[in-house]
C-alpha cells in the first residue's frame, strides 16, 4: 500500500534550559517505501527529529502521525515495535548472543521458538553473516562492521514498518562503509522498507537517499531529490553546501538511476550495462570506454531497470547550478 506512513506537522523541540529550538517547526511527509536521508552539520537537530518519531523525546509543539494516527495516542511500546532503530554506537546487548539479540523483539511479541530461530537465520543471511558461524557469538567477538550488521538484523527482526537509522556507519572505515551502504540499498530494494537515515556526510546522503532532507539550525532547508538539491538548491544555505562540488563531484554522488528512463524497446544485448546504484561518474567512464550512445541500468539480479542516453548525461554537465545569485 502506497501513501503516507509518517506525517510530521509543525514539529518543534526545545530542550529544558535551552534557548534555541533543537528542531524548529519541521513539516515533512514520508511515503511508504521511501529511502530518505537527513543531512546536516553537527547540532542541526537530526538526532532530535529522529528521536521524536520514536517518542524517545516528547514534542514541544506540533504533531506526528503514523499511518494517519497521532503517535501521541498510540500505546508507546507497541508503536516502537513497528520501528527499527539503528544507531552509531550500535548498542547490542553484550550478555546475549547474536541470535538472542535478534530475538529480543520477536520474543517480546511472543513468537514461537522455531519461528524466531528461522527469522534469525534469515536475517543473518540477509546481512551477509553466515548464521552457523555467527549466531552463537557474543557481540564482543565481532568486528565493528559485523556488529553493525547484527544491529541492522536486530532492527529488522519483527518486520518493522519503518527503519530509523542514526549515522549507523559513522564509526566504520570507508571501504566497509561503502559495502554496508550497498547492502543497505539492496535490502531496501528487497524489503521495500521505509528508511529514514541520518548522516552528516553529503556523499552518503546523496548515494543512499531517493530524497534528501537538508537541515540547519533545527530547520529543514530543502527536502528534495539529490538531483534537485544539486541543480536547484532552494536557498543560499543549500547552494553553498553543494557549491564546492564541481561537475565530476556531482557525477560521483548521483546514482545512475537518478537520471535513467524506463526502457521502451526489447533490451539489446550489445548495449553496455551499469548497476542502478553506480555513480554517474562510472556511467561517464562507461560511455567513454565503449563509445556507445546508450547504457542500460540494471539491478543486482541483472534485470534492466532503465537506460541512460549520452545526450542526457551530457546535458547535466552543461547544467549550471541555479542559485548563483546567492553568492553575489
Amino acid at each position: 500500500m502506497a501513501g503516507k506512513i509518517i506525517e510530521i506537522r509543525g514539529v518543534s523541540k526545545q530542550f529544558k534550559n535551552a534557548q534555541a529550538y533543537a528542531v524548529d517547526h519541521v513539516s515533512i511527509d514520508v511515503s511508504r517505501g521511501d529511502f530518505i536521508t537527513i543531512m546536516g552539520t553537527s547540532g542541526s537537530g537530526k538526532t532530535t527529529l529522529l528521536k521524536m518519531i520514536n517518542r524517545i523525546h516528547e514534542l514541544t509543539d506540533g504533531n506526528i502521525f503514523f499511518e494517519g494516527q497521532n503517535i501521541h495516542d498510540l500505546k508507546v511500546e507497541a508503536y516502537r515495535k513497528k520501528i527499527g532503530y539503528v544507531i552509531q554506537q550500535i548498542g547490542l546487548f553484550p550478555h546475549m548472543t547474536v541470535a538472542e539479540n535478534i530475538a529480543v523483539v520477536p520474543k517480546s511479541l511472543h513468537w514461537g521458538k522455531d519461528r524466531i530461530a528461522a527469522r534469525a537465520s534469515e536475517l543473518l543471511s540477509l546481512v551477509h553473516l553466515e548464521p552457523a558461524i555467527y549466531k552463537d557469538r557474543y557481540p564482543s567477538q565481532l568486528s565493528g562492521g559485523q556488529q553493525q550488521r547484527v544491529g541492522l538484523a536486530r532492527a529488522l527482526a519483527a518486520d518493522p514498518e519503518i527503519m530509523l537509522m542514526d549515522e549507523p556507519f559513522g564509526a566504520i572505515d570507508a571501504i566497509t562503509r561503502q559495502v554496508l551502504q550497498d547492502e543497505l540499498l539492496a535490502i531496501h530494494r528487497k524489503t521495500g522498507k521505509t528508511v529514514l537515515f541520518v548522516t552528516h556526510d553529503l556523499h552518503e546522503a546523496f548515494r543512499l537517499g531517493d530524497k534528501v532532507i537538508i537541515m540547519n539550525e533545527g530547520r529543514v532547508q530543502q527536502y528534495d531529490t539529490p538531483y534537485n538539491i544539486l541543480f536547484h538548491p532552494a536557498n543560499g544555505y543549500v547552494a553553498k553546501l553543494v557549491a564546492s562540488e564541481d561537475i565530476i563531484e556531482k557525477l560521483k554522488v548521483l546514482r545512475a538511476d537518478s537520471i535513467s528512463t524506463p526502457v521502451q524497446v526489447t533490451p539489446d544485448g550489445r548495449v553496455p550495462r551499469v548497476l542502478a546504484n553506480a555513480p554517474l561518474s562510472a556511467v561517464l567512464g562507461k560511455f567513454m570506454e565503449t563509445g556507445a550512445p546508450q547504457i542500460y541500468v540494471e539491478d543486482a539480479q541483472g534485470r534492466i531497470e532503465g537506460s541512460i542516453l549520452w545526450n542526457s548525461l551530457q546535458s547535466i554537465a552543461s547544467l549550471r547550478t541555479e542559485g548563483a545569485e546567492y553568492f553575489v
Partner: peptide
C-alpha cells in the same frame, strides 16, 4: 550500563519491566 544499550532497549519497545 552503557546509555546506548538502554536507549536501544527503549526504542525497541520493551517495557520498563522487560
Amino acid at each position: 550500563i552503557d546509555e546506548a544499550i538502554l536507549e536501544n532497549a527503549t526504542a525497541m519497545g520493551l517495557t520498563e519491566r522487560e
